[in-house]
Structures are given as C-alpha cells and as structure tokens.
Amino acid sequence: MMGHVPREREITEPVDLALPDGRLNPAAVGWTRTPLHRTDGIGRGRVGWGRNKRWEYWAVTLETHVVAVVVSDIGYAAVPSLFVLDRRSGEQIAVEGIAPLGRGTTLPGTLDHGPASAQTKSLRVDIDPTPDGTRLRARAERVELDVVAQLPPGHERLGVVVPWSDRLFQYTVKDPARPAVGRLTVDGTDHEVAAGAAWATLDHGRGRWPYAVSWNWGSGSGVVDGRTVGLQVGGRWTAGTVSTENAVIVDGRLTKISDELRWEYSPDDWMAPWQVHGGPVELTFHPEHVRRSVIQLGVIASRTHQAFGTWTGLVAGVAVDGIFGWAEDVHQRW
C-alpha cells in the first residue's frame, strides 16, 4: 500500500525562482524551512513588466505598541510606509508615500543579500542584515525606531512559492517570533524594546501578481507554557494552487500545514471574534483594535481591515493561547 503523499514539496537545496526568460522555474514550487530561493530574476527582463512586486514588511509588537515598516517596489512605483499603534490609547500614526518608478528605494534581489531602504520627504526606512539578525530603522516626524530582529541559531523560517501560472507567481517568507531588542521613540518618549517582551515578524515578498487579488493573513508571537510560539496562517490568495502559507513554529522548529483554512468573521463587526480552522487548525482571534486603511492612487487601490489582538486555540496540537498578533482582510488592485 502506498503511503500518504504530501501535497506540498519541501525544498532542501538552493533554487532559482525564475527561469532566464523571467517565467516561473517549476523546480522552485514548494516550501522551505530556511530561505533557499534565489529571486534576483524578479524585475528583470520584459516578462510581466509593471506586474513585478518586491517588498520587505516588518512588524514589531510590544506590550505598549505595534510598529510596522515597509520598503516596497510594486513595478511602477515604490510605496514605503510606517505605522504605529499605541495599544493603550488606540492612537495611530501612519506615514505613507509613493515614488514613481521606485525612486529613492533599494531592495536586495534575494533575502538577506543586502540592505533595503526607502527615502521620501516625510520618511526614511533602513533594513539591514546583521550577523545576529536584521536591523530595522525608521525615522519620521513623530517616530524613531531602531530595533534588531534577532535570528536565534536554528530558527526556522517559512518560505513558500505560490504559482498561479508560469508568468504569475509569488515567493513569500513569513517569519514570526523573532526576538526584538532596541528602542522606539514616539513624540519624544522612549519605549524599550526588550527580548522576551517584544517580537518581530517578517513578510518578505518577491513575485508577479494578478492586478486584483484578495487575501487573509494572520500572525502571532509569544511564549506559551514556557515555549516560544510563532503562528502563521493565510487564506484566499493561495486557493486553487498547490501551495499554502500555514505553519506553526515552536522554539524555532517549524511544522508546515498544507490544509487550506476557512476564515470566518463579520465585515459588519470587525471587533467580533474571528474563526480560522481546517485540518489540524482550530483558532479564535480576539481583536482589541482594528486598523482601517483605504488607498486610491490611480491604478493602485487597496482596502485593508487589520485587527490586532490575541489568539487562542490549537495548531497541530500546539496551544497558542494568549499570543499577540493580528488578522487581516485585504482587497488589493495594483
């Protein structure tokens, strides 16, 4: 009798994401425990000009604040941003910009192969690989961030290639539960970012997207019963492909989940509990704050509802009760 054949293939050797002509390399489709995909081919050549998307998104969660920084180039423009949420007062600070043709923006071809940076009149963001992790710096009128997202030895990071076709595909690295240390300054007041009480999460993307797409994304980081737990769940945008972006990381060890998950929540009441379930996943998300964002910049348009709060439930037998993070609903045209 033949045993169960996993629906997703684990890749264990370095591989190029794109072929020399810019199309998807079939050998790149699968998932990894550590970044192995070379993505320098994205953005080169004529295949899909204007559809190539490259970004680094980092979120840092503290007991008092949430901070997110973005360096991105979506093909015909760079769209950097900084977001700060005061968890106690609910006050938000959002600094967003757009630079035609990516002016003022630098992104490495492949993850950790160089710095990422963005400069506009109102915002400066620098993301730099270091020997022990990644240094995140941002400066705006009211905010200054200087944090290292530590990379503990043996810490595994989920990498997934999602193929829509040989011309449209995405490589993502989702990396929660990175201990964060450093400093956040808001309106002149310093807030310590201390290991064990603060966590960094990466969303790294390289690919070529359809013009219109919708997705769910959930993430959380924290300590449960003495173990460091990182949660990563997604939905909708991977449906119909051979890939999912679902996993749980416990003390640095990743367990991949291939099931497509069902997301249940109320667009009429974003503060009501969210349910995420399927296969070995049975989760409830309890919002404490909802960020609403609507962007309309010509061909670029997005509608985002991102709820911040705590997770409860089980993922592959792992309890995630009490870890803090977010769940989001996004509709994007780009």
Rank of each mutant, 00 (worst) to 15 (best):
D203K: 12
P176R: 08
Y265R: 14
R33S: 12
R178S: 15
R137Y: 01
T201N: 12
L111C: 10
V160T: 14
A78Y: 02
N246T: 13
V29W: 02
W326V: 03
A149C: 15
W31R: 04
V66Y: 10
V15C: 11
L101C: 05
L24D: 03
S117I: 06
S302H: 10
I127V: 14
W199K: 08
A316G: 14
V69M: 11
G48Q: 01
P273M: 08
W326L: 14
S122Q: 12
V299A: 15
R142G: 02
G205M: 03
R178E: 08
V148A: 07
G309E: 05
R227C: 07
V147S: 09
L36D: 04
G50D: 00
G279I: 13
G309V: 05
S214L: 01
A247R: 07
E264K: 10
P273C: 09
G196P: 03
L202G: 11
G317C: 12
T241K: 04
D21F: 04
E13H: 11
D132W: 10
V79F: 04
P80R: 07
P153M: 13
G182I: 06
L36M: 06
A116M: 02
D268G: 15
T120H: 11
V71M: 04
D225P: 04
S117Q: 12
A138S: 12
G317K: 11
L62H: 05
L261T: 03
R291L: 14
A68E: 12
R227W: 02
G298L: 06
L314D: 14
R262N: 08
P273G: 05
